[in-house]
Computed example of a mutant assay.
Amino acid sequence: MDSGNDTQLSEFFLLGFSEHHPQIQSLIFGLFLSMYLVTVFGSLLIVLAIVSDSHLHRPMYFFLSSLSFVDICFTSTTVPKMLVNIQTQSQVITCADCITPMYSLLLFSGLDIFLLTVMAYDRYVAICHPLHYAVIVNPQRCGLLILVCWTVGVLNSLLHSFLVLRLSFCTNLEVPHFFCELNQVVHHACSDTFINDMVIYITAMLLAVGPLAGIVYSYSKIVSSIRAISSAQGKYKAFSTCASHLSVVSLFYCTLLGVYLSSAVTQNSHSTGPASLVYTVVTPILRNKDIKSALKMLFGRVTGNRPVD
């Protein structure tokens, strides 16, 4: 294709919810503002509770606080801009303003995946190898796992962002989404996107399916260990510890993989919007079931009672 026919992209138009009636948009604005505030303040509460209590400076709570911090960054990457667009009825976003949140979204969604995997590993060791837990999941290994998560996440985000920057676009583009989602931007390019598509599919397989296999393996071993517990109360406690985490993992993976692999079988870009809302807004708020535990932690610290695991 002759690159001389292309012009430098200056703006994207994020259509998002612009097709809805103004009253519906007001309802959507209030709904997602409430969900965003609950997610942010709930996650901050969890981090505050864990940081302020020395009894909670353990691997399980260390990973939980890391995940809560990532949740704040994850939702803050997309939701505030979406709320501003709804309120001002402005859908215009510059190329630079599009690439930056795209990079951040890729980074924090990747960190979500890796941290969920690390937490599954932590619970596997705690339930299946309780006597060796302190040796296997020591502070040095916890720090190394977090460092690996961030390193892989940053490299993956940089790779996709640089590949998007090499693309050329013919004109200002209308994106049927409420944020600059990677697939949507790539598929609106005028230049050849073969390399971008291949990298998207390969990284999706390596960085999503790979960790998912680790989660499934960990929980298969956990279930086997729980079945061997003779006490009904012990089984209930073990299952309740893992059930909420596993349900959120399932919801997050189903929607995330559905969005990033759907382009392989369909070009219906409008169908990815609702699914994206689930993993960017709904899934983090579901994880805030831990808010109740965080409140118990804080009240326990104030009253001098230690939290019970």
Rank of each mutant, 00 (worst) to 15 (best):
136 I>F: 12
162 F>V: 01
100 T>H: 15
166 R>N: 04
111 L>C: 10
135 V>M: 10
169 F>W: 01
134 A>E: 11
146 I>D: 06
125 V>R: 07
168 S>N: 04
114 F>L: 12
142 C>R: 04
183 N>R: 14
107 L>H: 05
174 E>Y: 12
171 T>L: 10
170 C>S: 13
150 W>C: 13
115 L>F: 13
160 H>K: 07
151 T>A: 09
101 P>Y: 02
164 V>H: 03
160 H>Q: 12
134 A>S: 12
125 V>P: 00
106 L>T: 15
185 V>Y: 12
126 A>M: 11
140 Q>E: 14
165 L>I: 01
166 R>M: 03
161 S>C: 07
129 H>C: 06
174 E>H: 06
152 V>F: 02
133 Y>R: 11
113 I>R: 04
123 R>H: 11
165 L>D: 06
122 D>M: 05
131 L>D: 13
111 L>I: 01
181 E>V: 11
138 N>I: 08
117 T>R: 02
154 V>I: 11
110 G>W: 06
142 C>N: 09
120 A>P: 04
168 S>M: 07
179 F>V: 03
120 A>R: 09
139 P>N: 03
133 Y>P: 02
153 G>Y: 11
181 E>Y: 09
118 V>T: 13
138 N>R: 08
153 G>R: 09
183 N>I: 15
121 Y>V: 15
172 N>T: 08
102 M>Q: 06
134 A>F: 08
158 L>H: 10
128 C>F: 00
101 P>F: 02
143 G>S: 01
115 L>W: 07
107 L>A: 01
184 Q>V: 14
160 H>C: 11
111 L>D: 03
132 H>V: 12
145 L>D: 12
184 Q>I: 13
125 V>G: 01
151 T>V: 01
182 L>C: 04
114 F>Q: 14
113 I>D: 03
166 R>L: 04
181 E>I: 10
125 V>A: 02
106 L>E: 11
118 V>M: 10
122 D>S: 13
163 L>S: 05
175 V>W: 12
106 L>A: 08
142 C>H: 03
123 R>Y: 05
143 G>W: 08
145 L>Q: 09
113 I>N: 10
109 S>M: 03
185 V>P: 01
139 P>C: 05
140 Q>M: 15
170 C>Q: 07
154 V>Y: 14
103 Y>F: 13
124 Y>R: 08
156 N>H: 15
131 L>M: 10
178 F>L: 05
144 L>W: 10
168 S>H: 07
126 A>D: 09
